[in-house]
């Protein structure tokens, strides 16, 4: 399949310095000097299929600053997971360059935390021991990290469930445990693939606020995949809108809303304008959203 280049990249829009987050408690993030955390440069992903090669990502470029919260937003099948997996090093992209913290990604990255739509907890381990899996594989000090794990779980409201097995928890609680597991070693980059996609609206709202709270307290770069427009605006410094077939970046929208953001913010005209802007992008792409 020829790599048609219609207008997949919008380098100018996002290759420059993104909004800084060092001042994120203020209404307007200052323009910025933050170092890049993730560099995605001209990355393509081709999947071989029965009907020939399928171009899942077409020369995507994106730079994410340290401490920045960036959402990948788009309809199902536009390559969001593919891009996130490529950044994680769990899959190998076909061409292009990905760097994290200045180092090229050529194998599964271990200095990151990763959360998927499903919690992928080990059913035979208690909540605490699931979180401690992170420390075990990294051969981190058991006593120190057990304390850390307890603190984290306490913070997300699971303090009373340390010894519960995953099947004894609700979906939202399981996902909170998965987030704690991803954060135990204090990674500088958090990759989240529709972490709240399988949850009901109310639980999702709660976890959105919890995630913002966690992120505001400890400086982390977050790459957050979602197909929820509201969720993306609520959480992000920038929303990267993707379009399908082939997967491309259609638009990058900087969200200048004060933090901490509350659920009430969703009813404000500013929020509505961002939502409208994103829906317009989808409409121009002929995508239902």
């Amino acid at each position: 399949m020829p790599m048609l280049r219609i207008d997949g990249r919008c380098d100018g829009q996002f290759d420059g310095q993104p909004a800084s987050v060092h001042d994120r408690m203020t209404a307007m993030p200052a323009q910025a000097t933050a170092r890049p955390s993730v560099i995605i440069d001209d990355v393509s992903q081709v999947y071989p299929t029965r009907n020939g090669d399928y171009l899942a990502l077409d020369r995507v470029s994106l730079t994410i600053a340290q401490g920045e919260f960036v959402s990948l937003l788009g309809p199902s099948g536009c390559g969001k997971s593919t891009l996130l997996k490529a950044v994680s090093g769990l899959t190998r992209h076909t061409s292009g360059r990905i760097e994290i913290g200045g180092h090229p990604v050529v194998k599964p990255q271990t200095d990151i935390g990763i959360v998927f739509q499903e919690p992928f907890l080990l059913e035979w381990r208690s909540v605490l021991r699931n979180v401690m899996l992170q420390a075990e594989f990294r051969k981190l000090d058991k006593a120190v990290y057990t304390e850390k794990a307890r603190d984290l779980l306490e913070r997300v409201g699971l303090g009373g469930f340390l010894d519960s097995l995953p099947h004894e928890l609700s979906g939202g609680m399981r996902q909170r445990a998965a987030i704690c597991r991803a954060m135990l070693h204090d990674p500088s980059l958090l990759l989240m693939d529709e972490p709240f996609g399988a949850l009901d609206a109310m639980t999702r709202d709660n976890l959105n606020l919890l995630l913002q709270d966690i992120w505001l307290r400890s400086p982390k770069t977050v790459l957050f995949v979602t197909h929820g427009v509201t969720e993306a605006i609520l959480l992000s410094d920038r929303v990267v809108v993707m379009s399908p077939r082939p997967g491309r970046i259609a638009e990058v929208i900087t969200i200048d809303l004060p933090r901490p953001r509350t659920l009430k913010l969703r009813a404000t005209p500013e929020f509505g304008r961002y939502a409208h802007q994103i829906h317009e992008v989808f409409r121009s792409l002929g995508v239902d959203s």
């Binding site: 994680s88 990763i114 998927f116 992928f120 080990l122 899996l133 594989f137 990294r138 597991r181």
Partner: peptide
């Protein structure tokens, strides 16, 4: 075994033996 579990373990720096025994 769910592939997601293996992915999670790999991102923790787990080797093949560790993944086999623990996951």
């Amino acid at each position: 075994v769910e592939l997601g579990k293996l992915d999670v373990a790999r991102s923790m720096g787990a080797g093949p033996m560790g993944i086999f025994i623990k996951v």
